[in-house]
């Protein structure tokens, strides 16, 4: 293995994980990108509830949804489920 990887003395025992998946960006899996139209958005947050990836964030202060494209895999569930038709899937 490459020398960058840790040796047996450096890692926790028993396969205890030491890195959160938030450090693993799945955004580059995406072919289509969800683009919200915040004018049309009624803030029902169904997209948030149906997202498999937790890639839609509710910004409480700003009172709006925000896509985290670091993680969004572009499945399109949000666009399909949005009753306001406020999310468009756009080819990257």
């Amino acid at each position: 293995m490459t020398s960058k990887q840790k040796g047996w003395k450096e890692i926790p025992i028993a396969g205890v994980c030491w890195t959160p998946t938030t450090e693993y960006l799945t955004g580059d899996w995406r072919t289509f990108k969800p683009v919200p139209d915040l004018q049309k958005c009624n803030k029902c947050l169904l997209c948030y509830v149906y997202c498999p990836d937790g890639a839609i964030e509710w910004k409480r202060e700003a009172e709006k949804i925000e896509f985290n494209y670091n993680y969004c895999k572009g499945c399109g569930i949000c666009a399909n489920e949005c009753r306001q038709e406020a999310i468009k899937m756009v080819r990257e």
Binding site: M1, K6, A14, G15, C17
Partner: peptide
């Protein structure tokens, strides 16, 4: 997290 999927990059070390 205990008992993850551990592939050729670290299983051997464990």
């Amino acid at each position: 997290t205990m008992g993850p999927l551990d592939l050729y990059d670290y299983y051997f070390e464990h």
